[in-house]
Design a protein around this nucleic acid. Structure first.
Lengths: 193, 193
DNA sequence: TTCATTTCTTAACTTTAGTGAACGAATTTA
DNA sequence: TAAATTCGTTCACTAAAGTTAAGAAATGAA
């Protein structure tokens, strides 16, 4: 399990045994059941999540309706807004599947960063990468229709379409489940004719 | 003009005269006319932009149509994706109004950062702030209808509605200019009834 | 397994956005 | 200033998404 983590880190910085042990000693690995809720609206938490295996989901409840805005799968990390500004969370985080996570709070991060400046370097790179990815995603979302968004997702994250319930996917695409069903039927129809 | 910059910076770190002079010696201030294009699709550039006064706009041309995805006004900065990965730009950047900018390329940044670690600190904070803002914006966009997005904009950035042409605003909201006109008429109608 | 709940799809109807065209107003350009 | 272009709005029509409801399929719990 730890190997997955160290393989990932090795893409950014190389670690000594000391450093690896420092990470392991933090006891950060968590195994979480499908459906479990990691963070609730209104809750304060310092925890950051990094998915080693499985899938977690970020969603709001607006007018009693779940609005899913993001999924995080293998090798993707999530720093909840509430962990940055120490305010109650505006959203929920839950597990789409049985998931193996790294859960690290901000203090741990600070501790590691001061002991091993390498980490700070890696975090900088990661956050820059993330910002860039985020911006491109947003632009793509804005400039395309629901149907295009679905086709795009089919190309870029085909796994999501398999592993995530339709109604969660729908709200991720900014539409209702019924519209997603219809839209899919429409696409099949086009490919026939 | 420089005062605007130093006032802004002073919110994050305090600068010595030396440091201020180091910044000024870079000769980074640019005055740009309305309509001027700062970056074109396909072009490579290392330049980052920071708006001191005025407004710049980021847009794609997709199937011959302009798709505006962002506006940057006073005290907002833009690091084009092409400046990070040294690839041709996928989008354009142009001036919505006569604008006073700071234009800094990546080398300058590196030079300042090594001379004055303070800057690196500030950049870290800024990029974290930006990422958080970006994520909230994206979530809001995804979870709301065009009409809600317009109402939201009216609250959060009323200045944009005044200073930006309607058709650019429309595509920023993810709709066509005709739909924005109609939507506005609809809102007025509601407030009458 | 059986029952209950959740999920997905379909359908009819409503609302809203996209499209193409027209027109006046505002802005540019010659 | 005059002509040309761009811009914003309106209209009629089309296409797509929202809404409400119903039923089938899949999932989960007792």
């Amino acid at each position: 399990m730890q190997d997955i983590l160290f393989d990932f880190i090795s893409k950014y910085v190389s670690l000594t045994e000391d450093e690896k042990n420092a990470i392991l000693s933090l006891d950060i690995f968590r195994s979480v059941k499908k459906g479990a809720i990691l963070l609730k609206e209104g809750q304060k938490s310092q925890d950051n999540y990094f998915v080693l295996k499985g899938c977690i989901r970020k969603y709001y409840i607006i007018d009693g309706e779940e609005k899913t805005t993001a999924f995080f799968t293998e090798m993707e990390g999530l720093t909840p807004h509430c962990a940055i500004n120490n305010a109650p969370s505006e959203y929920f985080i839950s597990c789409v599947e049985d998931t193996i996570l790294i859960v690290a709070n901000t203090d741990m991060g600070v501790e590691l960063n001061t002991k091993f400046p390498k980490f700070q370097l890696m975090c900088g790179v990661l956050s820059e990468e993330l910002l860039a990815k985020q911006q491109i995603n947003f632009d793509e979302f804005k400039t395309s229709s629901p149907e295009q968004r679905y086709m795009n997702l089919l190309q870029k994250r085909p796994d999501l379409i398999q592993r995530v319930p339709q109604h969660q996917l729908a709200s991720y695409l900014g539409i209702k489940p019924q519209s997603l069903s219809r839209l899919r039927a429409r696409i099949v129809e086009k490919n026939k004719g």
